[in-house]
Computed example of a mutant assay.
Amino acid sequence: MGRSSRLWGDDCRAFRPERWLDGHGRFVAMEAARYPVFHAGPRACLGKEMSYLQMKVVAAAVVRTFTVEVLPAASMDTPPEHEMAVTLKMKDGLRVRLKSRACAAS
C-alpha cells in the first residue's frame, strides 16, 4: 500500500517529501489506514508516538549538523527491499552523503 499508484498517484515510487505538505509548507497528516506502517484502529502500534518523537529528535540533530544528499540507487526500476524486524527497515539502508555544516561554512 505504501507504493500503490491507486492511493498515491502515478509518482508513488518517487521520493517526494513535499507530498505531505500543504500550499504553505505545513505538514498535512494522512489517515492512519492509508499508510499502514503503524496500523489503525484498536490494534494501533503502542510505540507510534515514541517513534515519531525519536525520529524528530534525530532528524533535527542531523539537519542542524550536516547537509544531507541522497545518493542515487543502482536501479530505481524496482522498489527497495525491506527487512522484517522489530521495526521495518530498508534492506542495505538508504545511501546518503553527509557534509559537516561547519566545514561548508569555512
Rank of each mutant, 00 (worst) to 15 (best):
M1I: 02
G2T: 06
G2A: 02
R3K: 07
S4M: 05
S5I: 06
S5T: 14
G9C: 10
D10W: 05
C12W: 00
R13C: 04
A14Y: 03
F15C: 01
R16Y: 01
P17R: 03
E18F: 01
W20T: 06
W20L: 14
W20G: 06
W20E: 06
L21K: 02
G23S: 04
H24Q: 06
G25P: 08
V28S: 07
A29Y: 07
A29K: 15
E31C: 02
A32H: 03
A33C: 08
R34S: 03
R34I: 10
R34L: 10
R34C: 04
Y35W: 14
V37G: 08
F38G: 01
H39Y: 13
H39A: 12
H39R: 05
H39D: 09
H39E: 11
A40V: 10
A40S: 15
G41V: 00
P42G: 01
P42N: 03
P42F: 05
R43M: 11
R43A: 09
A44N: 05
G47S: 12
K48C: 07
M50H: 12
S51K: 08
S51T: 15
K56L: 10
V58K: 05
A59C: 12
A60C: 13
A60M: 09
V63D: 12
V63M: 15
T65Q: 14
F66Y: 14
F66L: 07
T67A: 14
V70H: 02
P72N: 04
A73E: 07
A73S: 04
A73I: 00
M76G: 04
M76P: 01
D77K: 14
T78A: 12
P79C: 00
P79L: 08
P79G: 02
P80S: 04
P80A: 03
P80E: 03
P80N: 01
P80G: 00
H82T: 14
E83N: 10
E83W: 07
A85S: 15
V86M: 15
T87H: 12
L88C: 13
L88R: 15
L88P: 09
K89E: 11
K91S: 12
K91R: 15
D92M: 08
D92W: 11
G93H: 06
G93L: 10
L94F: 09
R95G: 06
R95K: 07
V96G: 09
R97D: 08
K99I: 10
K99D: 12
R101V: 09
